[in-house]
Design a protein around this nucleic acid. Structure first.
Lengths: 296, 296
DNA sequence: TGATCTCATCGAAATTTGTCATGTGCAAAC
DNA sequence: GTTTGCACATGACAAATTTCGATGAGATCA
């Protein structure tokens, strides 16, 4: 049995435990942490060896964590809380200035509010003003210099080297099971408004693949599109996060849409240390929790 | 500047910081932690690089820690407190049994009481009985099997492989500045009683080196010897911890005594898991705080 | 000035961590 | 029953990090 002196809990291993709990497994936690599945497995193994007790249950139909694992999770959260507070506190510098940050409706959520709130407490001399618009508008305002940075959706292949990738999403074709699509007839399409770049991709699709799309409903909010789908009004393109239990995925009937990427995009020639710090904070938080929770 | 994601504070580096603060320097902290001085120096350097701020002040006549370093010390203590509690809590097992522990008067202190108190709370089924005796008595009782373990003083060269070394001490020859030693006359010697192994070494010295020692005062407590020295009654051998501001160190006038070691010594054939756990707890605590504080 | 002490730095050895490939177990589908 | 897919574990090894010992640099004291 290792002596007490040999028992040192690695902060990153504790963070891995919390990620496993948060995301429901070793493999998903590994993705979030940017490690391989086996690295995370090794970390847990090393914790278990160090403490000489089991943390994850290896039995079927058992909770993921053992009782000891649950106890350690509690300690882990406390340690990580102080650790992260220490890191933030000591990183505090005399940053100042103004930041104009854009975001889309579906990234306007409590997670981001918490990030911004903490940022304000740490850097009271920095003023952050946020604008909520759709992605194409945000991109235009970036190029006009009206925004310093924005969290936008782009297609995976449109990600730029200077973008900070937050996470990716898959788009799905969805409809209600009660909606019957007849061959040879135009497909009723539920569309976000002109500023949604999904819509353009969907309409271009109508020409390229021979399928005919008829826009029967336009709405600028995801909630509206979701309601339209569940009412059986038509077919829509929705990201994975927006899927509802009663929806039918009909990806096989239509061309596969490219993956989406959520990125922080900065205005060109932006050399603002405060902005860099904010970007880093947002990136770190997303890395820890995986996504920015949807507001729906 | 490193992103927030790269900032991970190593628990052992934080522990090194606390040891530096506690013991007044990198070199002493390294001894306590069982590392080389350069390893501790590297640890601090890595913390500083990770946080991109200075922790130790490298200026003369400045406090050891910078302001940021002081802040981080506070966090470090909180993190280590939770960390160590987690380790102890998860190590709790169904230990039981009886332990007879011996200790010398000068290790009977609040530190050890705290250790024993915590041990009792974690392992309520284990009964610990303590006896306070001088080192030679304790060693005899160990060999008789009357004790399971004891914290004893031995000369450095008498440390056994199975002993758990807690810390070392230097012995000094001391007297009061008002005591004048005349050449050719016997040296007045203040002696612990027959059970103190210092005394035997000191009397043997009288034969080996030609100096003549005359025992003018016997006392079994360190406090008594200290009082005799400060009263100018004679010369005594005292450990570093017992030195008082008004004492004059006269090491150059007498042969250099061997260093002392405080060890946990176990009875032979002792195979008690509870005892092993207690030994590890004591060892860990001493490693964290350096010494067991004197009771004087 | 020389001696001593403390911490920093360098080069290399030792240790730890992460990756890749593969193994193992379980559940679902056929 | 077999096959397939998914999740985590394990082994070998490379990469990264930490530690050691030697030495350098600076400060202090006699």
């Amino acid at each position: 049995m290792p002596g007490v002196m040999n028992r040192r809990l690695d902060v990153d291993a504790l963070r891995a435990m919390v990620a496993i709990d948060q995301h429901g497994g070793v493999t998903r936690a590994a993705e979030i942490l940017g490690l391989s599945q086996s690295a995370v497995s090794h970390k847990i193994r090393r914790l278990e060896a160090s403490l000489d007790c089991e943390i994850l249950s290896r039995k079927a139909n058992a909770p993921m964590f053992t009782t000891a694992g649950q106890d350690l999770l509690g300690y882990a959260r406390r340690i990580l809380g102080i650790h992260d507070e220490a890191v933030l506190s000591l990183s505090k510098s005399t940053l100042q200035g103004k930041i104009a940050l854009g975001m889309t409706e579906d990234t306007t959520c409590t997670d981001l509010a918490r990030i911004l709130g903490r940022f304000r407490r740490l850097y009271p001399e920095v003023s952050v003003r946020t604008k909520v618009r759709m992605s194409l508008v945000l991109q235009e305002q970036l190029s006009l210099g009206a925004l310093d940075a924005a969290i936008v959706q782009v297609f995976q292949h449109e990600v730029r080297p200077a973008d900070v990738l937050l996470y990716r999403e898959t788009l799905h074709w969805v409809k209600s099971p009660e909606l019957i699509l007849r061959k040879g007839e135009p497909v009723p399409f539920l569309s976000f408004d002109d500023d949604c770049f999904y819509r353009r991709w969907g309409l271009d699709l109508g020409q390229d693949a021979g399928a005919v799309f008829e826009t029967v409903f336009e709405c600028s909010s995801a909630a509206g599109i979701i309601a339209g789908v569940t009412s059986g009004l038509g077919v829509a393109l929705l990201s994975q996060r927006h899927l509802q239990p009663g929806m039918e995925i009909v990806d096989k009937d239509f061309p596969k849409p490219p993956d989406l990427a959520y990125v922080i995009r900065r205005a060109r020639n932006s050399r603002n240390p405060a902005l860099e710090t904010l970007v880093r904070e947002i990136e770190a938080e997303v890395r820890r929790y995986g996504t920015l929770q949807i507001a729906v």
